[in-house]
Design a protein around this nucleic acid. Structure first.
Lengths: 248, 248
DNA sequence: GCGGGCGTTTCACTGAGCGGAACGGTGCCC
DNA sequence: GGGCACCGTTCCGCTCAGTGAAACGCCCGC
């Protein structure tokens, strides 16, 4: 039970926020509990959200409405990147038949904007719209290594969560890994986010060389030769950078 | 300038709704004009939306925030369908290298949930999260032909907009086309939404045979042999139906 | 038949929200 | 360079939208 905000708008939006990644349907009682709003208040606000199409009523609960999906697809920061990136991501997929990602940094996480995958790819946890802590993903290391120092500081201050036995949880070791990332120009993830899964990632720059996204390939440890794949990933990211620059 | 809602929550949300498909950045003044909210009110509400991450400030404007994209990806009605459908859509893409769609009916429109495409595909207007009037899409005809009669009635009552010279705008002709759609078990679009572009669509059912989505292929008129493709599209839709039924 | 969960309705109080008015900055055009 | 138009922003006293404790009817499992 969170301390509820006092403005009506923030309260109403907290009801949308209450839907976590794992939730599909939530009952009024649960929404009330999660947001800390009194039941009658939650009831009134939820009714308004349903009327607007932001939530949908189901038997015995509420779920996020289609309007949110549609609106979300219009978010400029992802839309431009996704549209420009898709052809390049598909090229990488064709060449490897493994999971190809487009990611951005949404501190302190790596946020997955797009995932090109198929039956032959290693099944992994990543999901479009999903997140993983930056310090244990190949993309995240690219952001931390090439971005401003404050990125790394904030991530370290927030604590380096251990997801697998190989996750780097010591700030010193992470810093070393980032130094090598900077030298090489690409980031690696050796079973640090998921056992048996490795990844390579390369940075996408905007027209003033700031890192705005990353392209990565992830798959089973023994199926991917990371050093051999790295140039291809870097090339794809570079082409995308050029295209983003051209688009402004 | 719309008549502004009087509840705070609805007013705040109308600010998000004000971002149309074509807009990326909107100024405060424009937001105020579109929603009909007085400038100071819009200013206050927008500030709250920014604080919550729903909007982002840019130099000289506001844009939709990443939170909306992330939340939108969690919308259950699209998430389950998309995840289950992707492998089948990719199979169709591999076989044809043309635009493969997953759609739902969002009256009075066909709403595109997923689009698998590539460099070799005919470039067409469809976009994930985008819409086209149901009466001029192959998927839409599937929804109108197999769904409850009220679907068709409401669409006809709303008026059959003409998008191309071949768009069916007469209710009687549309009804005939839907009868044939019902017989065949698949819907066709012969340059009715976009000149030179044709499509085939087949229905996806839930565990109680209600139509919940459609799978379609669209491309240049002379490149696609619709009658020959139809069985493949139907098969993919059927497999997806079975999978959706299995998932509950 | 009883208890505990649910969603829903009521209603008198009150402070959150309102928006007209006024302010400072910026860029365009006589 | 001065006037003008439009921008975002701040102020502040009035008031009605929003509040939430209390109570209700319902459905279930015990």
């Amino acid at each position: 039970m969170e301390p509820p905000p006092k403005s009506v708008l923030a309260r109403g939006l907290s009801l949308l926020d209450a839907f976590g990644t794992a939730d599909t349907d939530l009952t009024l009682a649960r929404l009330s509990a999660r947001t800390g709003l009194p039941k009658p208040t939650a009831h009134r606000l939820v009714a308004e959200l349903v009327a607007g199409g932001w939530l949908e009523r189901t038997e015995g609960g509420y779920r996020l409405g289609m309007k949110l999906f549609v609106l979300g697809q219009g978010v400029p920061r992802q839309r431009g990147l996704r549209e420009a990136a898709l052809p390049y991501l598909e090229d990488l997929y064709e060449a490897t038949h493994e999971n190809v990602h487009l990611t951005v940094f949404d501190p302190p996480d790596t946020l997955f904007l797009e995932k090109v995958t198929g039956r032959r790819s290693t099944p992994i946890v990543s999901r479009v719209g999903g997140r993983l802590p930056a310090h244990c993903t190949a993309s995240g290391k690219v952001f931390l290594a090439l971005g401003p120092p404050s990125y790394l500081r904030d991530v370290v201050d927030g604590g380096l969560a251990r997801l697998t036995p190989r996750t780097i949880t010591m700030p010193g070791l992470l810093r070393q890994d980032l130094d090598r990332t900077l030298e090489r120009g690409y980031g690696l993830n050796r079973e640090e986010s998921e056992p048996g899964v490795v990844a390579v990632a390369a940075p996408v720059h905007d027209h003033h060389r700031r890192v705005i996204a990353a392209v990565s390939i992830a798959g089973r440890a023994h199926r991917l030769d990371l050093a051999r794949l790295a140039p291809a990933v870097k090339t794809a990211a570079l082409s995308l950078s050029r295209e983003m620059a051209a688009r402004g």
